[in-house]
């Protein structure tokens, strides 16, 4: 039997492998032989394939597809790739790009799906997915009753890393399925934020600001503290809605889910949807003027106070302690 694990790799807007790929290929290596699938991005495929081999892909399949058709070409490519690899499992990112294609692949081929895994492993009975549900309140293990499991993996959750493999590239022949798809009429890519700060997803330290910061200008205080600690910057949805920061900064149930060593919440009340994205952080510090704010219920260190007084003092104290 094959030991192939088919891995759908996301490509970021800059034409590079998405951050999720390292963990996916690392996780796949724990289960068997990682075979990478990259769909589209013809102008970058040499570099993408090399990067995939570097991260542990023993074989890289390259597929083309109608770039104006939404999602279906990726599903068609998955079907073709599964045909030539006969995989024991199919993995992809729980990302906007990956999850829908994987779910559709599972429907088309009649496979079982496990969604939003934080880890994968193999036992005597086969491949197992591990999940963290309701904002980390429960740890759940799942498997499929039979057939090839299709598993989407939460971005940044898989810590395993694969070993560099010799580059083996194959062009994959894809028979378009003629499934009805929406047409992509326009593509707009906004500039990558120019920042030397760590990326929010996967950061070891995160400093987030909420509505309590008051304005985009005053949100700069969050950035100053982040820079003093070498941390990434996050935000509550209220801060995003108020226009203090772009949406990509949102931490929570419908934003990025983070689990850093240190999370500092500034002027954030701690709504359940916010907590769902950060309550598995190792250490939580909260600064809020309202001593009844629910964020204090989960904070290891809570300061009832004004961020505009406490944070500048904290930045100064950090500078003093560094010398």
């Amino acid at each position: 039997m094959s030991k192939n694990v088919l891995v759908l790799l996301d490509v970021d807007p800059g034409g590079k492998l998405a951050k999720s790929c390292a963990g996916l290929l690392g996780g796949a290596a724990k289960l068997g032989e990682p075979v990478a699938l990259i769909v589209g991005h013809a102008e970058h495929t040499d570099a993408l394939a090399a990067a995939a081999a570097e991260l542990g892909a023993t074989r890289v399949l390259l597929a083309e597809g109608d770039p104006t058709a939404f999602v279906t070409p990726v599903v068609d490519a998955l079907v073709a790739a599964a045909g030539v690899t006969n995989p024991i499992a199919v993995l992809g990112a729980q990302s906007d790009q990956g999850k829908e294609a994987l779910a559709r692949f599972a429907m088309r081929t009649g496979a079982g799906v496990a969604i939003d895994a934080v880890d994968v492993s193999a036992d005597a009975e086969g491949v197992v997915a591990h999940h963290s549900t309701y904002g980390g309140a429960y740890t759940v293990t799942s498997s499929v009753t039979f057939g090839v499991p299709v598993i989407t993996v939460r971005q940044g959750a898989l810590e395993a890393r694969g070993e560099k493999q010799p580059l083996v590239v194959e062009k994959l022949l894809v028979e378009p399925s003629k499934r009805k798809s929406a047409v992509i009429e326009g593509v707009e890519i906004s500039d990558a934020p120019k920042t030397s700060r760590p990326e929010l997803r996967g950061a070891a330290k995160v400093i987030s600001g909420g509505r309590g910061l008051g304005s985009a200008e005053k949100f700069g205080l969050v950035e100053q503290l982040a820079d003093a600690l070498g941390a990434a910057v996050g935000a509550s949805r209220a801060a995003v809605d108020a226009g203090f920061v772009p949406q990509s900064f949102q931490v929570g149930q419908t934003g990025v889910q983070v689990a850093p060593q240190l999370y500092i919440a500034l002027g954030i009340s701690g709504a359940i949807q916010h907590k769902a994205g950060m309550q598995t952080s190792k250490t939580i510090v909260a600064i809020n003027t309202d001593d009844t704010a629910p964020i204090f219920d989960i904070a290891d260190y809570g300061v009832v106070g004004d961020v505009f007084t406490v944070v500048p003092q904290l930045i100064a104290a950090l500078k003093d302690s560094a010398v």
């Binding site: 309140a137 429960y138 759940v140 293990t141 001593d291 290891d300 809570g302 300061v303």
Partner: peptide
């Protein structure tokens, strides 16, 4: 398999 994590406990809370 399913395991419930013990709920997070509040730590110290100080007034600034």
């Amino acid at each position: 398999n399913i395991v419930a994590k013990p709920p997070r406990q509040a730590g110290v809370k100080v007034v600034a």
